Simulated assay, not measured.
Amino acid sequence: MTDPIIEVRDLRREFLVRGTSGRWLRRARTVVKAVDGLTFSIPEGAAVGYLGANGAGKSTTIKMLSGILVPTSGVAHTCGLEPVRDRSRLARQIGVVFGQRSQLWWDLPLSESFRVLGAIHRLSPAAQARRTDELIERLDLGGFISTSVRQLSLGQRIRGEVAAALLHSPRLLILDEPTIGLDVLSKERLRNFLVEQRQLRGTSLLLATHDMGDVQRLTERVIVVDHGRSVYDGTLPGIAELVGAERIMVVQLAAPVPPLDHIPDTRLVGVEREGTQQRLSFVPAETTAARILELVGQHAQVQDLTLEEPDIDDVIRKLYLRTAEESVQS
């Protein structure tokens, strides 16, 4: 059995915030717990979404896993190494992309940044050229590879950042809001590339994002954090089941019928096209789509149906509300 690519145990990071308080503006110091006792592990080859609201502790965790920040207490291992003590060795095994920060040289052409990074990672000229050519082709960088980074559009720069992070073929790729500000086409192009890289090379992925499209497309497991603590670790469908999120069945009927507001364990949420299309909401734990279809068939002839999954943003919001209520009750 191989060691986890990431393992944290009771990981904590506190910051001391200085300010003033009181009538006489006395100096005050407040301890802020950005990460508060996280424990989880990620096996090699996995793709995990790391979710949470702004200030939940996502970026702080990533900085500790990559050796940028020293934990206040607890244990963190990345690729079997201690991130701070073994930072140089770790840098050769991971790639990190911060959506709002750059690892590229602002005034240099993209190609020169790749050449510098190849030297830093001690790639041979042949290996660097081979990998650079592959990334140029896969990410469609050819049209701006000789353009200075400062002149690139946001979408072009992000593709360059991802290519730079993967230049040395790392075992683990950590992405912090990689698609922030990108248009729909740029997002889809980047997602397709990341899926392809994982299939070809078995690269492990830790993805911190607010974009649920990224999570659904790229990951099979999610860890949700709130105020530095893990509040969920499992699958996206598992969250929906936990909070009782609803699915929607859209039925296309052969002829108009009165509103289907009497189907057991469902809630009618819409009647369209003069009654020939109706939308029924249900909780999967309480009934099944097959049972609903059988009951609807007793009142009308069904020509077609579709199932709409719960809105993931709404599911996460409900999870936060549930966690807050449990904290108050305890």
Rank of each mutant, 00 (worst) to 15 (best):
V96A: 00
I316E: 00
S113T: 12
L117S: 09
E137C: 05
D107F: 09
L295Y: 05
Q298M: 04
E196D: 13
R12T: 01
S330L: 01
V215I: 15
T30H: 15
F282A: 02
L305I: 02
A255R: 14
A76N: 08
Y232E: 03
T219D: 01
I239E: 01
D261S: 13
S148I: 10
I158V: 14
K33A: 11
R9E: 15
S73R: 13
M64L: 07
D214H: 00
R322A: 13
A290C: 03
S169C: 13
L108I: 06
G270F: 01
G297T: 00
I312T: 10
E7Y: 08
R191C: 03
V302E: 11
I94W: 00
A240N: 07
F40T: 04
V35N: 05
C79T: 02
P284I: 09
L194A: 04
A119S: 14
S230R: 14
Q301C: 06
V215N: 12
A254M: 00
S204H: 09
A129D: 14
V162G: 03
V302P: 14
D36L: 13
F282P: 01
Q303N: 15
R267H: 12
Q156C: 04
E326N: 11
L182M: 04
L293G: 09
Q252Y: 00
A119I: 13
R131L: 06
L321V: 14
L16C: 07
R322D: 15
R89H: 09
G80L: 08
R221G: 06
R322S: 14
T235N: 09
D233G: 03
Q252V: 04
P258H: 09
Q301W: 05
L260V: 04
L90Q: 08
E241R: 15
A127P: 01
F282C: 04
V116N: 05
E294Y: 02
T39Y: 04
D314K: 05
T179D: 12
L194C: 02
K318Q: 15
A255W: 11
I136V: 15
I223F: 01
A127L: 11
A255D: 12
R131V: 13
L175C: 06
T20Q: 15
A289D: 06
A165W: 02
E134S: 15
Q103W: 10
I248L: 12
V149L: 04
L172N: 12
I174R: 01
A46E: 12
V8C: 10
V257E: 07
G143Y: 02
M1P: 07
S148R: 14
E309M: 11
A119N: 13
G234S: 06
P4C: 01
I263P: 03
V149K: 04
H299W: 06
L152N: 11
V31R: 15
V184Q: 14
E137M: 08
D265Y: 06
D304P: 12
Q216N: 13
V243L: 12
Q301M: 09
A46C: 04
P125I: 08
P258D: 07
V283A: 15
R171D: 11
I6F: 12
V162A: 06
R221M: 03
S281N: 10
